[in-house]
Amino acid sequence: MMNIQKLAVLVVACAAMNLAAMNITAAQDSLAPSSRDAQRRVAKVYGAGGLKGLEAYQSGFLVSPDGHIATAWSYVLDVDPIVQLDDGRRFESKIVGFEPALELAVLKIDASDLPYFPVPADTSVQWGDPVIAISNLFNIATGDEPASVMQGSVAAVTQLDARRGTFKTPYRGDVLILDLIANNPGAAGGAVVDANGNLVGMLGKELRDTATGVWLNYALPASALRATIGDIIAGRKTTAPVESTPMLPRNDSHNFTTMGVIMVPDVLETTPAYIDEVMHASAADRAGMRPDDLILLVDGQRIESQRSFRRILRTIDRRDNLNLTVQRNSEILNLVLKP
């Protein structure tokens, strides 16, 4: 009797598994018609890189009909990148704004009436849901070919284990763990869509577990990006330099000496604004700045290089506080330097 009961349970379990597999297969088959439509909303992004194994390309996706493109914030954006759309058109773009804590940037190209992804307010996918990742992985689509497509499913919705520094990223929040290989070069910033072609996430940058060496395939939920993308497009949050701000006399403005910092040698036009040394008991020391800190923002203005850092300091009265956003290893910190 017991064997019959066990057999019955086994039959029911197998039937349930087969039904689940059939449902997943059917859902995955339904992805094909929507994938081409989603590809038209994905862009290829070309910028800085090309040396020491640093790829000079990544991915992005349109988030407005007027040419706003969301992408991953990375070294590729150290210059204003070139954007290529699905139809083969190429545009020079401008960086409208970025949010280091989300590793998100928004670009703008001079185009209109473009197909785009509405960014959802809620995360609509859960464990087991089929998804498609669309990106410029390995720079395969070099011309007017559609962006590359990978099919898989959501393996989990969870938070990164950042408490032990396992994954070195400034992002703190839920991620979509994917059962497809999403950490290929060039894939960062690509779109992840559901069975209906709706945007559900943005592929994150290459990320490896420092303890095990295992690469993580993940995406940031689109809902986590929605508010920041909206603020950047609406002009409520911008990191673009304010060109019209007048320079102050050198004795009246902030500078490296008044801050109490020594920068790394400025040998290139785009030398990053890294701190080499912090003077003891200086304003920078009191603010908590440390050697090797990278200056990202000053009073909300993007620091593109050490020279742009110097120019922006010349526009700020030395009697005023400096609101700094810095990157320290994988952390993003907001510091206030008081004169």
Score class of each variant (00 low, 15 high):
residue 266 D to H: 10
residue 267 V to L: 14
residue 281 A to H: 15
residue 161 D to C: 06
residue 212 T to K: 11
residue 9 V to K: 11
residue 222 A to G: 09
residue 206 E to Q: 15
residue 224 A to H: 14
residue 49 G to M: 05
residue 210 T to P: 07
residue 103 E to F: 07
residue 151 Q to S: 12
residue 299 D to S: 07
residue 116 Y to P: 09
residue 82 I to S: 12
residue 18 N to W: 10
residue 166 T to A: 06
residue 329 N to C: 10
residue 214 V to T: 12
residue 73 W to V: 07
residue 118 P to V: 02
residue 132 I to Q: 12
residue 279 M to F: 15
residue 170 P to Q: 09
residue 68 H to E: 03
residue 215 W to N: 08
residue 172 R to W: 13
residue 267 V to D: 07
residue 40 R to S: 13
residue 6 K to A: 13
residue 256 F to L: 12
residue 222 A to N: 09
residue 52 K to T: 04
residue 81 P to R: 01
residue 291 P to M: 08
residue 107 L to H: 06
residue 95 I to W: 01
residue 82 I to F: 10
residue 80 D to A: 10
residue 45 V to P: 07
residue 222 A to Y: 08
residue 265 P to I: 00
residue 110 D to I: 14
residue 298 V to I: 12
residue 271 T to A: 06
residue 151 Q to G: 10
residue 179 D to F: 06
residue 204 G to Y: 05
residue 332 I to V: 15
residue 27 A to H: 13
residue 106 V to G: 04
residue 251 N to M: 04
residue 183 N to K: 09
residue 118 P to M: 08
residue 333 L to Y: 05
residue 314 R to I: 02
residue 66 D to G: 05
residue 94 K to Q: 13
residue 220 L to R: 15
residue 243 E to G: 08
residue 193 V to E: 00
residue 239 T to N: 12
residue 222 A to F: 03
